[in-house]
Nucleic acid binder design. Structure first.
Lengths: 138, 138
DNA sequence: TCGAACTGGAACTAGGTTGGTTGCAGTTCG
DNA sequence: CGAACTGCAACCAACCTAGTTCCAGTTCGA
């Protein structure tokens, strides 16, 4: 939803979008959208202006915002699930699994984020425009 | 927890382990462990034997079981969260976001799984042994 | 200066997921 | 026969997510 919202903002950079407009595209509701955009603002990806004629816009160029930025802004904590609680420290295996797994999982998560970092909001804007052109060309 | 369990089994291949033994290492309980090992069995990674002296063992060499295998066996569905429901199809952006995001997310998930596929249970067994040696060497 | 159009934020809800638990039936083997 | 296992269903508490309601604050134009 965060990436969808960013793409909406990236597609029309001159004017701000209201949370209601974004919510309409997401088939969701404005309050939820503001919550998400609020996280993106905390991460420095978007800016909001209050009051009438207010709304949301990107804080920097869509070419300088990657999917990884959005991911990091919205998703906190690791994505691969760790032990729900520390294993048995008296066990020769349990004693070490947390540290070993932590390293492996971090590497895997890093690989995923690296891939997310290769696509920008500008790319998505272009893709949606291209797909829309495909549709209307007929 | 699945990877931890597989490492337990990989460390002692000659005899079967009971779900109680694995649960002890995980500081969890046997039923939960059997649930997890059951998924791993469905995926062909482990075998179980019933009755007295029964238990669990690897279905193939620890060198031929990767973290990706364990991940695929236990975790169903995508890890990056998609739209909770389809966006507004009447919106020029919403109409295309699902397909566009699906492609990007699959790529990112593929990258993570590729990295998980590079580590085997045998690697983890070796790592835990090495760490244990580090401890007892003093 | 009022009121419409916005954001900001707290409080609450329904539904789903996760780790955990209990209880019991079935299997194996000494 | 009985101890030691797996297999399986049912249930529970805690937590998370998307969604909702309500209201306070800000801005700006008529």
């Amino acid at each position: 939803m965060a990436i969808h919202a960013l793409t909406m903002l990236g597609r029309r950079e001159d004017r701000a979008r209201t949370s209601a407009e974004v919510a309409d595209s997401l088939a969701s509701n404005p309050v939820l959208v503001r919550r998400i955009l609020g996280s993106l603002r905390d991460a420095g990806l978007v800016r909001s202006t209050e009051g009438r004629l207010g709304g949301w816009r990107l804080a920097r160029s869509p070419r300088e915002i990657t999917l990884r930025d959005a991911y990091a802004a919205v998703e906190e904590g690791p994505i691969l699930s760790r032990h729900p609680h520390p294993p048995n420290q008296a066990c020769e295996v349990g004693r070490h699994m947390q540290a070993v797994l932590e390293h492996e999982f971090r590497e895997a998560e890093r690989a995923m984020e690296e891939r997310l970092g290769r696509t920008t909001i500008a790319d998505l804007v272009q893709q949606t425009i291209a797909r829309e052109r495909e549709l209307t060309r007929r």
